[in-house]
Write a protein that binds this DNA or RNA. Sequence first.
DNA 1: TTAACAGTAAACCGATCGGTTTCTTTCTTC
DNA 2: GAAGAAAGAAACCGATCGGTTTACTGTTAA
Lengths: 195, 195
Amino acid sequence: MSSSATPRERLLEAAGDLFYRDGVHIGVDALCKAAGVSKKSMYQLFRSKDELIAESLASRGPSFQATLQPGPDDRSPRERILEVFERQDNLVADGNYLGCPYVATSVELKDPEHPGSVVARHFKQQLTDFFHRELVKAGAEDPGMLAIQLTIAFDGASVRAVVRAQSLGGIGVLTAGALLDAAGVRAGELAGHLN
Amino acid sequence: MSSSATPRERLLEAAGDLFYRDGVHIGVDALCKAAGVSKKSMYQLFRSKDELIAESLASRGPSFQATLQPGPDDRSPRERILEVFERQDNLVADGNYLGCPYVATSVELKDPEHPGSVVARHFKQQLTDFFHRELVKAGAEDPGMLAIQLTIAFDGASVRAVVRAQSLGGIGVLTAGALLDAAGVRAGELAGHLN
DNA sequence: TTAACAGTAAACCGATCGGTTTCTTTCTTC
DNA sequence: GAAGAAAGAAACCGATCGGTTTACTGTTAA
């Protein structure tokens, strides 16, 4: 039950929800009310609203990662990469999708030195790193470059879902597939199978 | 000189600048002060701040289009498409790039029915339409799909520039090129030259 | 000359902003 | 049961929010 969680946990959860749903400009009063925590407690637990923004983003990192990235299995790197885009497609299709929380926060904050922007940059890099690991396994020629291209496809698809306010209908998966095709990363292929 | 422009023009210009630089949550007082227009005049010229957001976005549409899309020339569709990504690369490299104004506004507003979001959706479609026209000229197999993929690459590259707060270094051009490669749209090729 | 108009400056409205403070309740731990 | 810490409720701070109103200043046109 949520009221049994500590004030800190309740604040982080409410902040994650409300900053995502309404944007980081939502007021501290509304946030504390939603969390069932007094402002006094909030300002004892966090130095400022800005710090709460950053910490709430950071606390959701592992959960977002688990949502998007498949755990270890024996599928090919290409399949595991495309799985990320399929999961994104499902997230969008489920409704209430308002874009990648890290991107949204970065865009709203404007300042790249804001603690929230720093956290966002860090977690965005983790998705690129996942792509990179898989591409190395696949023996891709330029895994660094291709991992960035896939991240671009991911964020571009996310933006499309937000701007058009509709489902992606597999266009993200297709775009990622096209990028993998262009780089010669084929299905079922592992580095050891080459040559 | 800007003070010789009409109050309406001054408001639209200041709104375009400040909503982009600081976000749409900037106050009406600061905006009117920057425009050198009284709040009374503003509320006579625009029904609400929300309408001003939408109108300022719309008034900048043609200028943004001219900045990104090449005019008629005799280069190949592929070259003209890649030109868009080169111009985006230059925009980012010039500094003070805070992402596509339409995407930023959509993300900040959250509500897809907000008049600003409607305008943003409309102008984003115009970029996709440009890609589509060029791809038809090039005789691409599925110009509608590919035009969307290119728009995804464009917005993904834009997001990357914002989140990482650094130049793109040609990654957008390369990503678009890879998508065109995967679809078989080659340099110097026009529909009439096929077969 | 004067009446109408367009525009600015600034006060004003209730509400909310981020943040602090005071007071009270609740819970733990002897 | 008493002492002490933790945390909630709510008042409070100056500033700002979107929006309205009043009062004054130019310009224009009859």
